[in-house]
Design a binder for these strands. Structure first.
Length: 719
DNA sequence: TAACATTCCGTTTTT
DNA sequence: CGGAATGTTA
């Protein structure tokens, strides 16, 4: 009685999909069909009548993952999935808080601050309170607030042991007051508020506990403590929680992810059996063997070994470059060869690096070679200045107490409202503990400033009046036109792309409205379309790169590559200090997290993997000399193949000396060596070529620049 | 208020 | 070195 839906699942996948009403931990290795298992289980539960769509809550970490699940699910199930709660933690918390905003102590139209908005709000608060930003960097205050919220700690509960932490706790309290006055919540607040709502309100809690018989969690290793507590609360004692994750791919500890949640889950939910998905459908054997060998060096693993039914494939290619430039040149050459001779699409190749700074030289080299490439990780659509400005007008229409929105646009475009006017407004506002809007409308100001401010107030009010009841895209057009934003950007010649983005924003509004109407039909208690759109803008900031289409090489950090796969992967900068990053050495389990990151990088490759490192690299405007990453030495040598053109045969056995490699065993010269020349003085050896009597070395002299010298003739001595 | 100069800083990042 | 953020001047 196997349904077609279950056909093709391997035994472990099948076991996971068809589990009865019990909580389970699914250890899903990279490329093991995790998303398929999740979606098939949901479909199976519904199809067999074990659950109705409204009895299911599925939570993911990113919007992308949520969307993918939704798409796959609707392809599997003919029926509408209305009533099912599927989304990110933040999205679901938002939904809960909208539905019960009164019980949660929030205004119906509360707005959501993204991290940038939050940062601005904190800086604003500190300025009003005259806090020394040298002593209390706003970034640190933000981190303090967020990590406390993620630990479930309110300002009043923070343990303070000195004047410094007391001040931080004080700022935390003041910040929360400010948010409450303005009717805004930050990301962490969405979760904490939602957690507190459920924990305080027994009726509500029991209602949802009864409703969600089945809870499914994706990327469980990335959950933080608050998210886990939220899940536990929601699950109660009767829900079956299906947690899917991979402890070996936990790479977000630095932002609060707590892998320990996996062990806690086993304990707290009395998990009897952990299902391991270890068959990999992505990579060839050599790549998996390398990944397994590497990750086995970590302690504290739940334990898992990937395998494939496919062959071992090609060896992993290792390239040792003399410099970052040469490394880039090698990669570009190789990319071109793969593309031209083996007709591999550029989009099937990824160029990965540990830190964003590394992309510059790679981009530069690619650009000069005329190879199309696409870098992931820039500004996202809804984070752009012009978009934020436009949305600020809409936010003010929805909620005029949003001081952050008001400050962003009260004088943009310029309306003759300068700093001194704003200071007057701010002083009065903090004095009376009311919003800037309330001060502005109360007639405290006088003179020309008052006239200008009143004109602004009237502008917003007239916009609000006109927009009420209009379709979203018409509201957007009206606001862009009457705020003067459109004209402002049209008049500026250097900002043509901003005009395009604003047009795109109108487009986005139209698209959003169409999708939202369908959703609203199925669920009546959804907010109005404007609030929903503003929420969407905060919670889903959009793609990192707007321009899609043309075949292009994919450039990104290893973090950004998680979840993706490519035919060929180039992993660059495998040097101690860079990967593993030197800062990771000070952190508890820092190197283990870096190793997991390396594991993620390796397992992105389907067929071909290149690992490269450079003996010298330009960093912070200075040449730095590095040695091969320890991670290279942790890979079995029989899986590797050195591909340096100059490598002498004896180096085909990979060997990464702790000292930068000599070319000849009998040569005293190595890259990075300090040398002395009778005429040019002190310098550093940066490159070499040839051998024997033809050997030449490149030396960077501190006084006389960089020169090539024939070793046989130059009177060079080690220094 | 905008253009220009200066200073600071430098892992990874989604919501 | 290069950018972002802050400070200074016309």
């Amino acid at each position: 009685m196997t349904t077609p839906m279950l056909a093709g699942l391997n035994p472990e996948q099948l076991e996971a999909v068809t589990l009865a009403h019990e909580s389970a931990l699914i250890l899903a290795g990279a490329g093991s069909g995790k998303t398929r298992v999740l979606t098939t289980r949901i479909a199976h539960l519904i199809q067999t009548g074990q659950a109705s769509p409204q009895g299911i809550l599925a939570v993911t970490f990113t919007n992308k993952a949520a969307k993918e699940m939704l798409v796959r699910l609707s392809a599997m199930l003919p029926i509408n999935i209305r009533g099912m709660w599927m989304g990110t933690f933040h999205g679901l918390c938002n939904r809960l808080l909208r539905a019960h905003h009164h019980d949660a102590g929030l205004p119906a139209l509360f707005q959501i601050l993204d991290s940038g908005d939050q940062f601005a709000a904190i800086k604003r608060l500190m300025k009003i309170q005259n806090v020394d930003v040298e002593k209390y960097p706003p970034k640190q205050v933000q981190y303090f607030i967020n990590s406390n919220k993620e630990a479930g700690t309110r300002a009043s509960q923070v343990e303070t042991y000195d004047s410094f932490t007391r001040k931080l706790a004080e700022l935390y309290a003041a910040y929360d007051d400010q948010c409450n006055r303005e009717g805004v919540v930050d990301f962490a607040e969405l979760l904490l508020r939602s957690y507190e709502l459920l924990s305080r309100n027994e009726l509500l809690r029991e209602h949802y506990q009864r409703r969600f018989k089945y809870i499914l969690v994706d990327e469980f290793q990335d959950t933080n403590r608050l998210q886990y507590a939220w899940l536990k609360l929601l699950a109660g004692t009767h829900s079956a929680v299906f947690a899917v994750g991979d402890d070996d791919q936990s790479i977000y500890a630095f932002r609060g992810a707590h892998v320990g949640n996996m062990r806690d889950f086993e304990r707290d939910f009395g998990i009897l059996k952990v299902i391991k998905l270890e068959q990999n459908y992505r990579s060839h054997g050599n790549i998996l063997d390398a990944a397994n060998a590497l990750i086995s060096q970590n302690s504290e693993r739940l334990g898992k070994n990937l395998w494939t039914s496919e062959g071992s494939g090609e060896p992993i290619r290792v390239y040792e470059a003399s410099s970052d430039q040469e490394e880039a040149a090698f990669i570009v050459d190789e990319v071109r060869t793969l593309h031209d001779n083996e007709s591999m699409p550029l989009s099937e190749m990824a160029l990965l690096y540990r830190s964003n700074a590394q992309s510059r030289i790679l981009e530069h080299t690619l650009f000069n070679a005329g190879i199309p490439y696409k870098v992931y990780g820039g500004l996202r659509f809804f984070e752009r200045q012009e978009i934020k400005h436009a949305l600020a007008y809409l936010r003010l229409i929805a909620n005029s107490n949003d001081d952050g929105a008001l400050l962003r646009v009260i004088n943009f475009p310029v309306r003759g409202i300068g700093n001194r006017t704003l200071e007057q407004l701010q002083d009065a506002a903090s004095q009376q503990q009311i919003s800037l809007w309330q001060v502005a409308t109360s007639g405290t100001l006088s003179g020309k400033a008052a006239t200008n401010v009143m004109a602004f107030i009237r502008l917003i009010e007239s916009m609000r009046e006109t927009c009420t009841g209009l379709p979203l895209q018409e509201q957007m057009e009206h606001v862009l036109e009457h705020s003067g934003l459109a004209a402002h950007y049209q008049n500026s010649k250097s900002e043509a792309d901003r005009v395009e983005n604003l047009d795109e924003l109108i487009n986005a509004a139209t698209l959003f409205t169409n999708e939202y109407e369908i959703l609203r039909d199925s669920d009546a208690d959804q907010p109005d379309v404007l609030t929903a759109f503003l929420t969407h803008a905060s919670l889903e900031a959009g793609e990192h790169q707007a321009i899609a289409g043309a075949d292009a090489l994919q450039l990104m950090t290893v973090h950004a590559a998680k979840g993706l796969e490519f035919q060929s992967v180039f992993l660059s900068g495998l040097e101690e200090g860079l990967f593993p990053h030197e800062q990771s050495r000070n952190e508890a389990d820092g190197v283990e997290e870096e190793r997991r990151l390396m594991y993620v990088a390796i397992t992105r490759a389907r067929r071909r993997l290149y690992l490269s490192f450079a003996q010298s690299r330009m960093l912070h405007g200075q040449v730095r000399y590095g040695i091969a990453s320890r991670f290279l030495k942790e890979l079995p040598t029989e899986l590797l193949k050195r591909v340096n053109s100059w490598a002498s045969p004896r180096y085909s056995e990979p060997e990464f000396s702790s000292k930068p490699a000599n070319r000849n065993d009998d040569s005293p010269w190595y890259i990075g060596q300090n040398v002395m020349h009778p005429k040019f003085g002190a310098g550093v050896l940066v490159n070499y070529e040839g051998s024997g009597s033809d050997a030449r070395v490149q030396v960077s002299f501190s006084q006389s620049g960089t020169k090539w010298l024939a070793l046989e003739y130059a009177k060079l001595v080690p220094a």
